[in-house]
Simulated scan of single mutants.
Amino acid sequence: MSTRPETGGYMTEDRRMIQQSARDFAMREVLPVANRLDPEQGDIPMALRDKMAEMGYFGITIDEKYGGLGLGCFEYCLVAEELARAWMSVASIIARGNGMIGFDAMSEAQRAEIMPRVASGQYLGAFSMSEPNAGSDVANISCRARRDGDDWLITGNKYWCTFADGADYIIVIARTDPDVDPKRRHKGLSIFLVDKPRGQLPPGCQGNPIPKIGYFGWKTWELAFDDCRVPASAMVGEEGKAFYAVTHGLEKARAHTAARAIGLARAALEDATAYAQERIQFGRPIGDFQAIRFKLATMATEIEAARQLMYFVCTEIDSGRRCDKEAAMVKYFASEMAERVTSQGLQILGGAGYTKLHAMERHWRDARLTKIFEGTSEIQQRIISDHLLGR
């Protein structure tokens, strides 16, 4: 039985080719690396990152004039689903080129200098917004940036900064106006691009990796900035306007998370389907039993429903239409679906699923995270309900 997703009316011949190429790459290049390194919590190898760069995966949505592919959110999410089917961390690292929040706020001079290196995979970033007391409550950020002559000095604690060590720069959201009205605290935040040596934290910054239960392939850090000095040119966009840049970038980020969730769920379906045809009990493959067949049917249906909603949201984003409600819906629906489907996949494998001898436990662990990052399921429900009922 084939579990290849149906593509529906959204797919052009070019998109089918992009999808198939990404699928071949993921299964040939990514999955063996994931199966080897995830159990030992190893980092994504540079050799694999170089191959991804050759495929153009860091510049899918970057304009052709900067060396990117000049494609849309739709193609970005097509590739992300295929990569996540193999290893979600690899599907995530392409956002360090395509989807970094703050890019849209850059001046043309900054774009011309930075984007060609980003598109080629030579200049990848980490994003540092969350803090111990500020997650979804972005306006509560307390990390401070103060002027010192022609420079800025950044001081404060950050949390959940994935890839802080391996990145070539860190986008830091910091408060530049500490005296803003408490009811309008979102207006006092600014974006800084902090250059750093790859493999190190920037001068004036210390940190430690956070012990995670999944999302291996790269490290996630807690950071402490202590008068980290950056030039005035490091500010991205207008001073005090970071909140708007962050919220503007969330639609594409949430579609990307939905794509990753769908890829994980599809991995669980494909692995469970193969196992159900091989595992013999009571003299028959367990896939002959109705209980297993119906589980697989439900899993496949939920995956396809999420995928079609994602295709719709990506089309809206690429058309330039505002779709914050729909983006919240697809992120919410796909991530909740991924946890259910990967859990069912593990159930089909039984005891074998609860071991590290199969990739199913990886799919399950990583799917659980999709309900948390890029805004929790509860935050998505808040956004959706606000559209229905008002704030």
Rank of each mutant, 00 (worst) to 15 (best):
residue 349 L to D: 01
residue 255 A to F: 07
residue 73 C to Y: 03
residue 139 A to D: 13
residue 19 Q to R: 15
residue 183 K to Y: 10
residue 351 G to E: 15
residue 205 C to Q: 04
residue 236 V to N: 06
residue 17 M to D: 10
residue 307 R to I: 00
residue 45 P to F: 13
residue 156 G to H: 14
residue 289 F to S: 01
residue 10 Y to I: 00
residue 296 L to N: 07
residue 171 I to F: 13
residue 12 T to F: 08
residue 203 P to C: 07
residue 260 R to W: 01
residue 247 T to A: 13
residue 281 Q to P: 00
residue 129 M to N: 01
residue 52 M to L: 15
residue 126 A to T: 06
residue 87 W to M: 08
residue 55 M to Q: 15
residue 386 D to T: 11
residue 341 V to A: 05
residue 288 D to L: 03
residue 181 D to E: 13
residue 250 L to V: 12
residue 58 F to I: 06
residue 236 V to D: 02
residue 217 G to Q: 02
residue 205 C to G: 01
residue 122 Q to T: 09
residue 72 G to N: 07
residue 389 L to K: 10
residue 97 G to K: 06
residue 342 T to P: 08
residue 312 F to I: 01
residue 379 I to V: 14
residue 11 M to Q: 05
residue 330 V to S: 06
residue 149 G to A: 08
residue 29 E to K: 11
residue 208 N to C: 02
residue 243 F to S: 13
residue 375 G to S: 12
residue 49 R to S: 09
residue 78 L to G: 02
residue 287 G to Q: 02
residue 305 A to M: 10
residue 264 L to Y: 07
residue 181 D to C: 09
residue 1 M to L: 12
residue 71 L to W: 07
residue 44 I to Y: 05
residue 183 K to P: 00
residue 253 A to T: 13
residue 206 Q to C: 05
residue 52 M to N: 04
residue 264 L to T: 04
residue 97 G to L: 10
residue 371 K to H: 06
residue 46 M to Y: 14
residue 46 M to V: 06
residue 228 C to F: 12
residue 140 N to D: 13
residue 272 A to D: 08
residue 344 Q to A: 14
residue 141 I to L: 14
residue 246 V to M: 09
residue 358 H to I: 01
residue 277 Q to W: 03
residue 227 D to H: 15
residue 381 Q to G: 00
residue 326 E to Q: 15
residue 327 A to D: 03
residue 240 G to S: 10
residue 186 H to C: 08
residue 166 G to S: 08
residue 113 E to M: 11
residue 254 R to A: 04
residue 353 G to F: 08
residue 77 C to W: 05
residue 108 E to M: 15
residue 5 P to A: 06
residue 358 H to L: 07
residue 60 I to G: 01
residue 338 A to K: 03
residue 223 L to I: 11
residue 240 G to V: 09
residue 139 A to K: 11
residue 58 F to K: 07
residue 96 R to I: 04
residue 351 G to Q: 11
residue 265 A to G: 15
residue 132 P to E: 14
residue 8 G to R: 09
residue 205 C to N: 01
residue 196 K to Y: 13
residue 243 F to C: 04
residue 75 E to S: 03
residue 14 D to P: 00
residue 152 W to F: 15
residue 24 D to G: 02
residue 54 E to H: 12
residue 269 L to F: 12
residue 159 Y to N: 13
residue 86 A to L: 10
residue 325 K to M: 08
residue 8 G to N: 09
residue 360 M to Y: 07
residue 155 T to N: 10
residue 160 W to A: 14
residue 117 R to E: 11
residue 33 V to W: 04
residue 120 S to M: 12
residue 136 S to G: 09
residue 6 E to H: 11
residue 142 S to Y: 05
residue 276 A to I: 06
residue 380 Q to T: 05
residue 93 I to L: 14
